[in-house]
Write a protein that binds this DNA or RNA. Structure first.
Lengths: 134, 134
DNA sequence: TCAATTCCTACTAATTTACTATGATTAGTG
DNA sequence: CACTAATCATAGTAAATTAGTAGGAATTGA
């Protein structure tokens, strides 16, 4: 049960953006790539997922870049991870019509575990990570 | 962040064994295969992992089979999953010497998340699942 | 001795992950 | 307007992982 690299890199980039939030600057992907150690092209894709989820906003063209769409106080780790990790679902069986759905003795557990993980992740904000106060 | 099929199948099999615990019988892999819908050969491998972790005990030879090594009241879902899922670690970076170890702003989070998940999973016993009381 | 079973380990097909690569589109600047 | 620097969109691919299959040795009861 591993977090994908998208989850790791995406969260890392989000925290970099969080640290930069006070200044009203846009950071371009080159800067973010250097700060995180992730290739520019791969980061682009990951940030695009966060943009789609309205976590970051972007400006195109020369002098363009990215910043958080909202205060890092209001953005949780859960939001970020759900945006970049399409598979935050612990198992497929929950919403795919598993044939043993009715009789399965473990089904409930996976649902509860998923809820547990997400509610924990939603208690932590980007600010907390940015300020290293966890 | 998906649970492996080993985790799903292993837990399923463990609960089947839990339901059977009162009777002092050993269930063979054929029976477990039918109960879970997992192929015999694959189940064998998964159960072997639980055996190695002293969660199940086995008797070899004709009329052999498997049963839980302890009361299902004393076996947690966490124990089972850690036994069959070698990768319950959320990320590798925690114990592999990541080069950004010192500066990484997300490192702590992964550790806490891992602890959170495991302490939740350790509150749930096989009995609870077997009796569908979750 | 035979049959039924666990145990051990090698192999493989399919899937997923983690990228790389290309190029279109957009916008500021001289 | 031309140029340049940036995001955006999407296709392709190599490596790693997962999810199994397969074969046979070892063990035990009858």
């Amino acid at each position: 049960m591993k977090m994908s690299s998208k989850a790791r890199y995406g969260l890392y980039a989000a925290v970099v953006l969080a640290k930069n939030y006070v200044k009203d600057e846009y950071l371009n992907v080159i800067t973010l790539s250097q700060a995180t150690g992730v290739s520019e092209k791969y980061l682009e894709q990951i940030i695009a997922l966060m943009k789609k989820a309205n976590i970051v906003s972007a400006i195109r063209g020369a002098t363009g870049g990215y910043k958080l769409a909202d205060s890092p106080d209001n953005i949780t780790v859960g939001q970020v991870l759900r945006a970049v990790e399409d598979n935050l679902e612990i198992v497929d069986c929950l919403h795919s019509g598993c044939s043993r759905k009715g009789e399965c003795v473990t089904r409930n557990l996976w649902g509860k575990l998923y809820d547990n993980i997400n509610s924990y992740l939603d208690t932590i904000t980007l600010t907390q990570l940015a300020e290293d106060k966890l």
